[in-house]
Design a protein around this nucleic acid. Structure first.
Length: 1126
RNA sequence: GGGCGGGUAGCUCAGUUGGCCAGAGCAUUCGCUUUACACGCGAAGGGUCCCGGGUUCGAGUCCCGGCCUGCCCACCA
């Protein structure tokens, strides 16, 4: 290879700022990813090749294409599952960048509240033996921050090594300042709009640590327990008894007898003595919670329900009179409990369910439906207590102060003593235990923050966002289809594959309000300060208004009071300034002087000066007035659910609510939201996708909907006002949702950190290269199947690897060597100067058959790739390019041109163009090797090949996607080439079967048609079938020959051996005979079926007949030949 | 319990509205230092398309039932 042959040429190379540092190294025999990939990555970095410019969209110069990275958790390094999803996103990104879109792939990471906190907590416990409580909130959060920094760096490095073409200048983190600002604003608006409210919720309470724990920190343990059957006496009294007694509880009830129940037609009441006190029996595993019962429920379909109407029961000892309510939720007892397949609940149920809203999640729901009181009978340490909401203790005071376990024994004993314990039955069931303390989890009622996602501006907006044809319209809001017709921005959300739309829809139909508070330290702290024991809400409100007004914070805070009796109020801060102010005010409102370090939950440590006095001396009087009206003002200790900040990802990353605050965000939202596609795995459709849709549509104004191409020119000057809410009519955050396969380990389990079966993509990159990994993953990504990826230790390094990635590595190597070959032809010494000087005119009709065939295949493949990309059919894409490169280009085209290319400049032009097209088609999947090849290929002068358009830049990643005209499809050329191919294959088959020495040149006695085809193929047949001559003459008598058929033509081979190997020939012919006989019998079966002739399409019948004829001809000639052999 | 997938060659997987003798890669066997590539080239063997019914001229493909397997959600008085 001469140096002059690689002198830069062409317009793009004249640019002084060519980012390629120096000449590309010479092409080695094998492609070495380890040397190439880091170098190519540097080229991309130095060129800033992936930076998106919103201005080009806003001026209408380019269409936008945008993908938001689903931010990986900073809990651990990425595994192969991540490598898959990010490879696919990079493929889409790179393809569209080449297609001329202004392309933005927004990178970032997620703080992943619970998961990260748990990992760091565990690590600190293991390494230092300390709990987070011992460290204190401030110190602990700093430790998590340090951990996050470490893993964020690792993850970023991994993404870069994989080859991700993210816009690295815009990398975000869900808790960085920009995202914090978005969270604060979003929370504030929802709070102001009444969509955030305070509600009760049962949390998982750890009575030992006395803290709420997250669901995934609860471990289900199977334990042997008991079912206790308790009798509650039935009484008459209260409203429905007809006697209007005094309202104080439980004093006028009249015991109900079995005799009375019998009169009411209560089933089996006659089995009991008529004068005896009647009862209902409830079954429970937790008898001690009966102290908090506020109803007994029965299924309305239960025959006992009607006779009990209007009656009540009395809780033994407590004396509380509670209603018998009807609810479909109650499981009726099984008729035959021994029968298999009966709901285990039904097997143990009595049909009566004790309802304890304060201590059971279902009972809580039931209580809400029936407006039942909620009575908490437990202290935070899970002992029975009358200090936390329980007042009517009655004779049950003997339980107070006992632990759960002791109380349970005591309750059972007391019931037994009174004849109210019907029976106990052993029962094995799962009970939640705290991961850390191992204590049994107690469902414990507490105050939480909720987002009212059931509001139409949330749920309705999410459902209306779906494209019409993917909606079933079933569910609770049947009318919703109509409401949305024709509204701009609605109906833009489409799922790929479509079946996931249903999951999205049904989830919303059953959605409940979203609890967003989490009892954690790592996360966005809730920007709300609680006013406790408000003396006079009206006065306080006036004082607060005055204070905030004088502080210039009127727009920055929102004050709300709880509904009557207004003992509590909440102030929500919108800005950092308001947050600081409220912190100071909170200090001032704390009893006693404000001196010294603050409580460990407060991330501030200050000197002894009263803060408010120091920062706001002129507001002291107003502040004191506020302090007078309340007992305390404390910031809510909880943080937000991680998904709250994730839900804002499409807008927080683009600078919402105020792009001017942080540099580089100007115009991003207008240019790139709605984004093009969200690419993710299926498990977060509900958690994440839904919430992004709701928030995007809620927070972005209706007017944000991106103007169409013709209007976009003016958009730069006509910005949307981001301070205005969309109220559910704003744009969707993305138009397509592509749900891809999951990577499983060798046993078919999902790759996950907890299982420890994750494979680090860097291990695979080390053994095979990033391109090989990407190609293989892409190739495996089909629409339905999850992918199994068994890994083995690499014998060389001991790290994980898998022979599956050989597929991709081999492909890269094949491309590399095909390029070496092509370059050797294109850069022939002596040829280059002439090539450069004189433009080569490529005339399509004059091209050899092989070239016309190749161009036809190329055109078809480009169309297939384009269609596959549009449909997210990644496996089809990879397979198509694989076949094009390997089967068509290498196996046949390169072989076909070997003899003629040196002498034919037009053929060299085609060779260069075809290779260039293939390299570009492959670039999104295998960016490194193609970029490395481009460094060489772009230095070879390109001559115009009609129908092929290739705009070239210094870097391939910014060069144009290949345009190959559909007109290059050439059916005739493909057919003729096919003939040549089957001829070569047939001859090779004979050679192999007759064990002809590979180098031995043999003679083909051809028909005129075949001979003509061979000539058109330009020596291809001679080379590949190793022939000396192709002749029209029949072989001379006595010369050893074998016969073969191609299409309808019978041909002969001679000179392949000194004598025919009768055994081999016999075997060959018998095989043909057996095969054709099988074919004929199959076709006959079809043709002999009268229904087939009558009903099948005539062309199929005709095809069957001609197939039969062809097979018969082949069969007969093989039989004739066989006779000659024997 | 509800929902959604998958079960096709030894392995990992394609097979788009039913219609060529069911395909690919790897693995296996045989033959090749053919000057781009042994990470390669050529040839070969290998499948009751989970089971049982049904619709149809025709089913891997559509319908019903069953078995095995995976995932998501809910729940466990």
């Amino acid at each position: 290879m001469s140096r002059s042959a690689r002198t830069p040429q062409g317009p793009s190379d004249s640019a002084a700022s060519s980012p390629a540092p120096g000449p590309a190294p010479a092409l080695e025999k094998a492609y070495r990813p380890a040397e190439t990939e880091p170098r190519i990555r540097r080229c991309w970095d130095e060129a800033g090749a992936f930076h998106a410019d919103p201005a080009r969209v806003l001026t209408g110069e380019r269409e936008p294409y945008c993908i938001l990275i689903p931010p990986p958790n900073v809990t651990a390094a990425l595994h192969l599952g991540h490598a898959l999803t990010y490879s696919l996103q990079d493929i889409l990104t790179r393809a569209h960048r080449m297609m001329g879109y202004e392309t933005l792939w927004m990178p970032g990471t997620d703080h992943a509240g619970i998961a990260t906190q748990a990992v760091v907590e565990r690590r600190i416990k293991e390494e230092e033996g300390l709990t987070r409580q011992q460290l204190g909130r401030e110190e602990f959060v700093q430790r998590v921050q340090a951990f996050k920094d470490e893993y964020e760096a690792t993850i970023t490095e991994q993404l870069k090594v994989i080859g991700c073409s993210c816009d690295w200048a815009r990398q975000r983190f869900t808790m960085d300042e920009q995202c914090v600002a978005a969270v604060r604003e979003a929370f504030f608006r929802l709070f102001r709009d009444g969509l955030i409210y305070r509600g009760k919720r049962l949390v998982n309470w750890d009575p030992v640590l006395q803290t709420a724990v997250a669901d995934d920190e609860v471990e289900d343990v199977e334990v042997d327990g008991q079912f206790y059957y308790l009798r509650y006496p039935v009484v008459r009294g209260g409203r429905d008894s007809g006697t209007k007694g005094p309202r104080d509880k439980g004093r006028i009830q009249i015991p109900e007898t079995w005799g009375e129940l019998a009169r009411r037609k209560y089933p089996q009441a006659d089995d009991h003595p008529p004068d005896e006190q009647a009862w209902v029996t409830v079954a429970t595993t937790r008898p001690e919670t009966y102290l908090g019962d506020t109803a007994v429920a029965v299924n309305p379909k239960d025959p006992r329900a009607a006779p009990l109407k209007g009656l009540m029961v009395e809780l033994p000892l407590v004396g509380r009179i509670i209603p018998i309510i009807e609810d479909e939720y109650v499981v009726m007892p099984a008729a035959d409990p021994e029968t298999d397949g009966v709901d285990p609940k039904a097997r143990y149920a009595t049909g009566f369910l004790k309802v304890t809203p304060a201590h059971d999640p279902n009972d809580y729901e039931l209580g809400l439906r029936h407006n039942l009181p909620v009575i908490n009978v437990l202290a935070p340490d899970a002992s029975i207590s009358d200090k936390h909401g329980w007042t009517d203790v009655g004779d049950a005071h003997l339980f107070v102060g006992k632990s759960r376990e002791a109380a349970r024994q005591l309750v059972v004993r007391e019931f037994y003593a009174r004849g109210l314990l019907e029976e106990t039955r052993p029962y094995r069931h799962t009970v939640g235990h705290s991961d850390r303390s191992k204590a049994v989890i107690e469902p414990y009622l507490s105050d939480q923050w909720y987002v009212k996602v059931t509001d139409d501006s949330m749920r309705g907006a999410a459902l209306r966002a779906m494209v019409a044809e993917q909606r079933t319209g079933e569910g609770t809001e049947g009318q919703r289809n109509k409401r949305t017709q024709g509204r701009d921005g609605d109906g833009a959300l489409r799922f790929h594959p479509a079946r996931y739309a249903k999951m999205f829809e049904t989830w919303h139909d059953n959605i409940r309000d979203w609890c967003i508070s989490r009892q954690l330290w790592w996360g966005h702290r809730i920007p709300v300060w609680t006013l406790d024991e408000v003396k006079d809400a009206g006065v306080l409100k006036r004082n607060l208004d005055t204070l905030f007004s004088r502080a210039g914070l009127t727009e920055d805070v929102c004050i709300r009071f709880d509904p009557l009796p207004q003992a509590h109020g909440h102030i929500c801060a919108r800005t950092e300034k308001a947050e600081a102010f409220l912190n100071d005010l909170s200090d001032l409102c704390r009893p006693g002087p404000v001196i010294g370090p603050r409580l460990p939950t407060q991330p501030y440590a200050r000197s002894g000066t009263p803060l408010f006095d120091q920062h706001h001396p002129d507001l002291m009087q107003e502040a004191r007035d506020v302090k007078e009206g309340i007992a305390s003002l404390e910031r809510d200790p909880d943080v937000l659910d991680t998904w709250f900040s994730s839900a804002l990802w499409p807008i927080s990353t683009m600078g919402w609510p105020d792009p001017a605050t942080f540099p580089g965000n100007d115009g991003l939202l207008e240019a790139f939201n709605p984004t093009s596609v969200l690419c993710t795995a299926r498990e977060i459709i509900t958690l994440w996708v839904s919430r992004m849709v709701m928030f995007n549509r809620y927070f972005l104004p209706e007017s944000h909907h991106r103007p169409d191409a013709t209007r976009r020119g003016q958009a730069a000057t006509d910005r949307t006002d981001l301070s205005e809410n969309g109220q559910g009519r704003g744009p969707v955050p993305f138009k397509d949702v592509f749900i891809h396969a999951l990577i499983m380990d060798g046993e078919g389990r999902k790759m996950s950190k907890t299982l420890g079966n994750g494979v680090d993509p860097r291990d695979i990159i080390q053994s095979h290269g990033a391109d090989a990994m990407r190609f293989t993953l892409c190739h495996m990504t089909t629409q339905t199947q999850d992918v199994r990826m068994p890994v083995v230790p690499d014998p060389a390094t001991g790290q994980n690897t898998s022979p599956k990635f050989d597929l991709g590595r081999n492909l890269c190597n094949k491309l590399w060597n095909a390029t070496r070959f092509a370059l050797s032809k294109l850069e022939r010494p002596g040829a280059s100067a002439a090539d450069a000087g004189a433009p080569v005119h490529v005339s399509y009709p004059d091209l050899p058959l092989a070239d016309r065939w190749m161009l036809s295949r190329l055109s078809a493949s480009v169309a297939e790739v384009n269609a596959a990309l549009k449909d997210y059919q990644f496996s089809v894409y990879a397979q198509t390019v694989y076949d094009l490169l390997w089967r068509d280009f290498c196996d046949w085209y390169l072989e076909a041109i070997k003899l003629t290319v040196n002498a034919n400049p037009a053929q060299r032009a085609v060779l260069r163009a075809v290779l260039d097209v293939i390299v570009r088609l492959l670039h999104p999947i295998t960016p490194f090797v193609t970029e490395a090849i481009h460094e060489h290929l772009r230095r070879v002068p390109a001559h115009r090949v009609p129908g092929i358009d290739l705009a070239t830049e210094a870097l391939l990643c910014r060069s144009a996607w290949p345009q190959v005209a559909a007109g290059l499809r050439d059916g005739a050329a493909e057919e003729r080439f096919e003939t040549v191919r089957s001829l070569v294959t047939a001859i090779r088959e004979v050679r192999s079967q007759h064990k002809v020495a590979p180098a031995r040149r043999i003679t083909l006695h051809a028909t005129a048609r075949i001979a003509k085809a061979c000539e058109a193929a330009g020596g291809l047949v001679q080379t590949l079938a190793v022939l000396d001559t192709i002749t029209l003459q029949a072989p001379k008598a006595g010369v050893p020959t074998v016969a073969l058929r191609v299409d309808a033509d019978e041909l002969h081979l001679s000179n392949f051996a000194d004598a025919v190997d009768a055994g081999a020939e016999r075997e060959r012919l018998l095989k043909i005979i057996a095969d054709r006989e099988r074919t004929i019998s199959t076709i006959d079966k079809r043709l002999e079926n009268p229904g087939y002739i009558a009903k099948a399409p005539p062309n199929l019948v005709e095809e069957s007949r001609s197939q039969r004829a062809a097979a018969l001809a082949e069969l007969e000639s093989a039989r004739a030949a066989l006779e000659k052999v024997e």
